[in-house]
Design a protein around this nucleic acid. Sequence first.
DNA 1: TTGTAGGCGTTATCAC
DNA 2: GTGATAACGCCTACAA
Lengths: 346, 346
Amino acid sequence: MAVVTIRDVAEAAGVSVATVSRIASGSDYPVGARTRERVEAVIEALGYRPNQSATDLSRRDTHLVGVVAPDMANQYYAQVTRGIEDAAHAAGYQVLFSSTDRRRTRAAAALEALLRRRVAALVVLGGGEEIRLTPEHVAPYGTEVVLVGRPSETFSTVQADGVRAGQVMAEHFLGLGHERVAFLAGSRGSTATRLRQQGVRRVLRTAGLEPPATARGGYTEEGGYTAAMELLQAAARPTAIIAANDRMAIGAMAAAHDLGLSVPDDVALAGFDDTPISAYVRPALTTYSLRSGRLGAEAMQLILEREEGDTSTRHRTVDGEIVVRASCGARPAADGEPRAARSART
Amino acid sequence: MAVVTIRDVAEAAGVSVATVSRIASGSDYPVGARTRERVEAVIEALGYRPNQSATDLSRRDTHLVGVVAPDMANQYYAQVTRGIEDAAHAAGYQVLFSSTDRRRTRAAAALEALLRRRVAALVVLGGGEEIRLTPEHVAPYGTEVVLVGRPSETFSTVQADGVRAGQVMAEHFLGLGHERVAFLAGSRGSTATRLRQQGVRRVLRTAGLEPPATARGGYTEEGGYTAAMELLQAAARPTAIIAANDRMAIGAMAAAHDLGLSVPDDVALAGFDDTPISAYVRPALTTYSLRSGRLGAEAMQLILEREEGDTSTRHRTVDGEIVVRASCGARPAADGEPRAARSART
DNA sequence: TTGTAGGCGTTATCAC
DNA sequence: GTGATAACGCCTACAA
């Protein structure tokens, strides 16, 4: 009933704790075959499970990676985290995470707690301002820090190529003949929005068109709906709206619908993220797949490389691809499609 | 540069480690005002952060709660986890989590790792079969276990009132005059599906109607699409489909659309979960709000109560409410609506 | 009020 | 090969 310690095992097996440790920890230190067998049997019989706190303390290394994000219930962060997690578990790490809810105090508390736990690495998701983290903070602990989705000189980063994504999407619409393209921004100060918008702007400018009319939707369906209502009722109605994410694009689709406008005939639409649902709204949503999971996997990759000696600050870019469906007008409305999720990756 | 330990602080402040400990750990052990002040200054200056592994080892208590779920990228689990997390942080706990990907080996490994960490509590999400957890497993460690969304005699549980949810939804459709109601099940062996289906069945039987035609969609949009295609092309086409979750309902909506059927006129639709998006598809989806976050909060509540001495096995039920929108036919299609997210909670 | 010292459960360095 | 034993960093009787 009481917790079995290494000493209990040693005693029961008639060996020293050192021997048990060598066996239980999977070390490659040589141990006699007979002894090993006996000890393993005892471990099994007693249900011995090494206390990780003790191991960490002794080894001075927790195999823990801390993840900090604005909100884990948000699909994007959840997917990135999943990517981190898969790679982490494969490498014998565990994931400890905290949502900041975009609040300074929560972010600070989360970071503090993670540092106390001496996490081997820290992955910060999102471009929010709520996080104050300096190299001095983590220096003493040798914690590897990776920022996902925000630029940095001092820390390693993993980013989606937002500018390129915006360009690709804008070019797609220009290719379809659109000249009045609007942009639906996410939240203020968001890196993702800024980059995508920059890409869109650049393409429009190069084509000699006016910069996109812009409204802000805070990345939610509701915000997208409201912002799109505004854009769609403006004097010069845009013929296409590029939303900074799928959720807003779907809100915009609802707005168009409620205004009696046809998508894509009256207004073409597209988003970013390639949310699972985007293939199943009607018309199916054209979007840009960012492979959020890859971002997480890449972040973990940086962490593992550090473990192998590379302590430099590195920057990785993960790029995605446009997924053309019906909402942009490049494909027939779903009615005639044989397959709901029909899409093309170019 | 090196990590600051309690000894460094003691030395710098000219006191014993015991004194520093009493101050740094926030204990209420009496300490002289002057001493306290001095020590606090040193802690601040040196940036001392207690090593949690050491604290845990010494206290024989990690303030860690482990969460195990099939897939954290799944909206539902993410929301429940968020609920756990908020409550956990408020109570000074941290959350360690693992996705099992519904695989036995991963589930076993996750559980093992969590047990080694000596998590104070374990929250198991989902009704999957991949998890083998017996009281004997955790008994030695005094780990509090809470199962969310699956029944159990031996462990505490938190569940949504699935039967009631199913009943409410079925009654809603009967009230609208439907007599051929079909059911879109999730994955095999899912508790949520079973309960909701049971509720639906019960109501239909009581009303003297045939049991619902059923197809399985695995809880995804794609599965819902495919399964609905099947149901909708059957000889006796159902006039209403109740899907076990919103994602499948949206897949079904796409299927109806692609078949040229009108929702809700040709076929009425409803889901469960009240996903944010459900208010923004067109027609807006009638659903049943389960407040997943509440499930998590409630689970954490059980854990905290245990901390206060209640070691009994307890069961909590969280119930939700139907959210009536346009897809069931009880409200006008969104076109005429002043507000996209229009909904009524009855 | 403050300090001393033993213990928490492992690992790792030495001897043997 | 195997076994003592000193860390690891903190907490907490117990003494003073």
